[in-house]
Design a protein around this nucleic acid. Structure first.
Lengths: 215, 215
DNA sequence: ATCAAAACAGGGATTTATACCGGGAAAAAC
DNA sequence: GTTTTTCCCGGTATAAATCCCTGTTTTGAT
């Protein structure tokens, strides 16, 4: 029953993805799809049977792990998504789980844990490590639930936030976004309030931490 | 002659390292050492014969790829270091090559390129992709050679740079560093000039890119 | 159709950040 | 010893960022 689970790998780094594929095969399962981002995965699902488990990286170009998980939840609700990330970032974990991921493991896990996680999301429907449950509990204790950057920030604010991580002045950003500098003031003040920061440097650091901009 | 090259893997992500190990074995070579950072590598070299090639990640805890490559250059000059990074960051490439790396490949290369790179650093002594040579040429044209952050920044400037990646005002930073705010102005202006940036956000982004501060 | 909320925009004030000027003390180089 | 360099500190001026208050338009829900 736990033999030969079909697995899809979604990661933009070819070398690492190929290596992971070898590992998955070594632990007795079958890699049916290798995709380099969410769009790629969707395309390959048109011509391949859906896998039982998707090992999903978060940071990818074109379509990242958050969006891809959400898409799978809507279109292939039976496919179990297992998030595979480099970072134990609290917001990233919460956001992935909220978007339908059944588990979250770090890239510095070991092979037995990978095996356990793949099999657990199929048999039990979830795989939670102590790290993940710890972060979840902390997030509940820390504040209100709505502190993930997807619901928190709207499209314009996200666009502004990216531009704020540069050496442009607010006036220049206003011109690029085709709004008044006062509107930019509004975006900035809203983000200061939402993200609990006080300066533009604080904004930039937040955006980098959350991978809203990539450096 | 190109069969069964001995390879060491240095990467802090266990899963990816194990996957890489499988790949390396599949292309006909031998993984003799797996280490999770520079210190770990040094320790394992005490009880294992030195490999012919080291596949070296850059960002690692404890001792990163820059330091580890430098150490290998001094202690095992015959070992060929092949840098394996996620980013095509110009400064990272230059710094790794300056510290003794014989090549630089990205984690989104494919397996044939990995094979070619491993074998090239042994037979030809180097492996340069177009991307790497392009960045090198650009760096030569862009400015003087000494634009790596080790020699460029002194201890006080580095300390200031770290503090600048926060929401503190310059006055507060001055108090923390026990100098006058004008001295802070001097540090800032010197860094603006050296790092070719114009704003404090530019400083913060540079510091994060160069891993001078950790986010 | 109406009301409430949100987005957008403006004026004006204060605080920071940036830029340019120069001078003195200590250390290093000659 | 002198010279040069480096580091530290000061004044002043301008630009940018931050903050507060207000009003209009747009949007969305009822």
């Amino acid at each position: 029953m736990l033999e030969n689970i079909t697995v899809a790998l979604v990661d933009d780094h070819v070398l690492l993805r190929n290596g992971l594929a070898e590992l998955v095969r070594n632990i007795g399962h079958q890699v049916t799809i290798e995709a380099s981002n969410g769009h790629d995965l969707i395309a390959r699902l048109q011509q391949t049977a859906p896998p039982q488990v998707v090992l999903m990286d978060i940071n990818m170009p074109e379509m990242d792990g958050y969006e891809a998980s959400l898409w799978l939840k809507d279109n292939y609700p039976d496919v179990k998504v297992l998030a595979l990330s480099m970072y134990d970032n609290e917001n990233a974990i919460i956001r992935m789980l909220r978007n339908g991921a059944r588990g979250y493991i770090l890239k510095d896990s070991d092979t037995p844990e990978l095996k356990a996680a793949i099999e657990a999301v199929l048999t039990k429907g979830f795989y939670y490590t102590e790290m993940v449950t710890g972060k979840l509990i902390h997030s509940i204790h820390a504040g209100d639930e709505e502190n993930s950057p997807n619901k928190l920030l709207n499209a314009r604010e996200r666009e502004f936030l990216k531009l704020a991580c540069s050496e442009k002045t607010y006036k220049e950003i206003a011109a690029m976004m085709h709004v008044s500098p006062r509107t930019i003031d509004g975006y900035r003040d809203a983000l200061f309030e939402k993200l609990k920061v006080k300066t533009r440097v604080g904004l930039a650091i937040y955006a980098i931490k959350q991978n809203i901009v990539h450096v």
